[in-house]
């Protein structure tokens, strides 16, 4: 996997408001404001600022309900619902709440929103500003799947994980791609550790910038990875439309089960989701 860093990040095109800096190099190192603008992908295509209280905008969001097959393929423990208790918009935030409760045979409930059938796009800048939950066994994610998943199935459809995180590692973000020959435990993946801060105590912007031959991963103003066709051991399947998913899983292969010390309910706050081209 290519280890992109800030000094070779010529594709990093974020510019912080109120900062006037002469080079991209200085920009990447100096920016401390998580409010960002896009230069090369500056045309807003889709956005949800979550400013209308109640259920999320039905023109953008669908829900996965239930437990899927084998806990959505990962032995996850939660039952996904679209109840306000698990998913609601309040005070300018989309709030996904994972709770510990007996519900239809599961011990936990939560929610998973997706734009499948409502919004999908090839390439662009996809980002969300979020505050994550915490504690052993919490597994929030902001991710994308190939819109042709129903015909070509996973992993051939491709998967781009913009943000995954283990509640027991509150400073560590993981970004990945999955495709044919590089899925599940063999995904192409990189983690990024936040220094002197955590993902569950404040908001952070998680995003990718995706072009014909690259996917750049960033958090706030830091580009921490670039994945190109040369980095994947199989076919590059990222030249077609993908849709967006946002969820909080409980338990599962990636994180392990919660313990008695895990505090419930847990919430993930999403300030906005924006897609540019």
């Amino acid at each position: 996997m290519k280890r992109a860093n800030q000094s070779d990040a010529s594709v990093l095109v974020v510019i912080a408001k109120r900062l006037v800096l002469s080079t991209f190099f200085a920009l990447a190192l100096s920016c401390t404001d998580d409010t960002q603008q896009v230069v090369t992908m500056g045309t807003l295509v889709m956005q949800d600022e979550f400013d209308t209280p109640g259920a999320p905008d039905p023109t953008i969001w669908n829900y996965d309900i239930g437990t899927g097959q084998n806990g959505w393929g990962n032995n996850e423990l939660q039952y996904y619902t679209d109840r306000p208790k698990n998913v609601t918009v309040q005070n300018g935030y989309l709030i996904i709440t994972a709770d510990k409760e007996s519900y239809n045979g599961s011990s936990y409930t939560s929610a998973r929103l997706l734009t499948k059938g409502k919004f999908a796009q090839t390439y662009g800048r996809f980002e969300a500003r979020m505050r994550l939950p915490w504690g052993q066994g919490l597994w929030p994610a902001f991710w994308m799947l190939g819109a042709d998943i129903d015909s070509v199935t996973w992993p051939n459809c491709g998967e781009i994980d913009i943000m995954e995180y283990r509640g027991q590692d509150p400073t560590i973000l993981v970004g990945s791609v999955h495709g044919p020959g590089y899925s599940g435990g063999n995904a192409i993946s990189k983690s990024y550790e936040l220094k002197n801060d955590r993902f569950d105590t404040g908001f952070h912007v998680f995003g990718i910038e995706w072009g014909p031959s690259y996917i750049n991963y960033y958090v706030d103003d830091v580009l921490y990875n670039q994945i190109t066709p040369a980095d994947v051991p199989g076919t590059w399947v990222f030249n077609k439309p993908f849709f967006i998913l946002i969820n909080v899983a409980v338990g599962g292969n990636f994180v392990g089960a919660p313990t008695s010390e895990t505090v419930f309910p847990q919430t993930m706050l999403i300030d906005y989701v924006r897609v540019y081209k």
């Binding site: 915490w134 509150p170 400073t171 220094k195 002197n196 801060d197 955590r198 569950d200 105590t201 505090v263």
Partner: peptide, 10 residues
Amino acid sequence: EKLGTVAQPR
């Protein structure tokens, strides 16, 4: 130290 990661006070 100022770790910045001491969180979730209960």
